[in-house]
Design a protein around this nucleic acid. Structure first.
Length: 430
DNA sequence: GCACCTTTGAAGAGG
DNA sequence: CCTCTTCAAAGGTGC
């Protein structure tokens, strides 16, 4: 099972298991993988990665993150000193090798420091309250990792496992030992990494501090990023997942299920039942924040609706902006509500893809292979991001999810939506 | 003190 | 295969 996971996870959807040839030429403590823009700059793709040409359009496109060459030797036999993109070194033959900066572990991912914009990424991932436990928090290889969070660290690992009650082998003990298992967090995805980096900026630009509102802004900014900019984070996330799967081969996302108590389900169920009753009415009332005007220095709603944001009754309401230049036909037909419902999110994805296509069209990197193929696809293909790793690269347009439904221009988007308005944008209200 | 909110993406579960 | 659910970060908010 772990092997499968490794194959899946490490490959990141790719079956290639290349070996970093140049790794051993570098100083052991030198981060082997830097996050300099060299890896991501659109103009300088890796030498062996000639920009793909869209077979249908002939338009070259930058490599999809999942297609970018893995920076680690991934096969067990090839695992040498594996550089964590974030500054870690995976041990060779069981010997832990740390990439320890002179100042110690102050900066969790020194490699990222090379990219100033990235430096904030990991600032908290190895923060004092995310201290890897001395022993049990270590990966079998002996490497602590920022994803390890052990709430039980306070329980003094060296302490004999005697329950407070004195029963050493009671169910309590079992439970305790279970609790002792360090909480290995999920690796951050591309958007999460982007959020970590950009949050501070957005907070600084805006007076907002409420994360929900900030995240909405970040979500829009994320969509407004260029392919290359997003690819940077997809690649980062892919590396994170790779290392994570190497450090914790047996870890599964399922391990963390139930660790968070959520009442969301009930709420969602209620919301769904409520939505089925008044979905149309609700949709027609709430404008879609995705159609907010393009980024301003602070593209928060405060820019245009400061009064709302100064004391937002609800972030959603505050963020909803009626002024949506790009919201033309489709939005009027199906205004979107701010909701966490997957369907609505899917709608937002499609909408925003079409909306952002205006920007994408202005960029030469805009791919139309996705649009040409996707637009003829069933709604299910369009209405949700296509995961990198689950779709064959050939079929996948090899594009970040956000570009799965890229449309050459707003006009084209409009045309598409006009031709397939319901199947693309809406979901029957049952 | 804890869940919620809000975002996107990855992964798992289940139909 | 597809859809749904959960979790990852963050910090103000509300119970």
């Amino acid at each position: 099972m772990p092997i499968q996971r490794l194959r899946q996870g490490i490959g990141g959807g790719s079956n290639k298991v290349p070996v970093v040839q140049h790794a051993h030429h570098m100083h052991p403590l030198t981060p082997l993988i830097t996050y300099s823009n060299d890896h991501f700059s659109p103009g300088s793709p890796p030498g062996h990665l000639s920009p793909e040409i869209d077979p249908k359009t002939g338009i070259p496109r930058p490599p999809h993150p999942s297609e970018l060459p893995p920076y680690y030797p991934l096969s067990p036999g090839a695992v040498g000193q594996i550089p964590h993109p974030l500054g870690w070194l995976v041990p060779q033959q069981g010997q832990p090798v740390y990439s320890i900066p002179p100042g110690g572990f102050r900066h969790p991912y020194p490699a990222l420091a090379m990219n100033a914009s990235m430096s904030s990424l990991m600032s908290s991932r190895f923060s004092p309250h995310v201290v890897p436990p001395p022993t049990h928090g270590l990966h079998p290889s002996g490497i602590p990792h920022p994803t390890i969070v052990s709430p039980i660290v306070k329980q003094e690992p060296t302490q004999p496992s005697i329950s407070p009650g004195g029963n050493s082998k009671s169910p309590v003990t079992v439970k305790k030992e279970e609790e002792k298992k360090p909480h290995i967090k999920k690796p951050l995805n591309a958007f999460m990494l982007y959020m970590k980096e950009m949050r501070a900026k957005v907070v600084a630009e805006c007076t907002l501090k409420e994360s929900a509102a900030i995240n909405q802004i970040l979500g829009r900014r994320w969509h407004s990023l260029s392919r290359e900019e997003q690819a940077k984070y997809y690649e980062l996330a892919r590396k994170e997942r790779q290392l994570h799967s190497q450090l914790y081969p047996t870890w599964s996302a399922r391990d963390n299920y139930g660790k968070k108590k959520k009442r969301k389900r009930e709420k969602l169920a209620q919301q769904q039942s409520h939505d089925t009753e008044s979905s149309l009415a609700a949709k027609s009332k709430k404008p879609c924040v995705q159609y907010l005007p393009a980024e301003k220095p602070c593209d928060s709603p405060a820019s245009s609706h400061g009064s709302m944001l100064d004391s937002p009754a609800t972030p959603s309401a505050a963020l909803a902006s009626p002024a949506a230049p790009a919201a033309t036909h489709s939005e009027q037909a199906q205004p979107l509500s701010l909701t966490t419902k997957p369907e609505a999110r899917a709608q937002l994805t499609v909408h925003s893809a079409a909306f952002l296509s205006g920007k994408a069209a202005s960029s030469s990197s805009s791919s139309s292979s996705s649009s040409s193929s996707s637009l003829g696809s069933p709604p299910s293909l369009l209405s949700r991001p296509i995961p990198f790793t689950s779709v064959p690269s050939t079929a996948l347009l090899s594009s970040p999810p956000s570009f799965a439904a890229t449309i050459p221009s707003p006009q084209a988007a409009l045309a598409v939506l006009q031709t397939q308005p319901l199947s693309l944008v809406t979901k029957p209200a049952d």
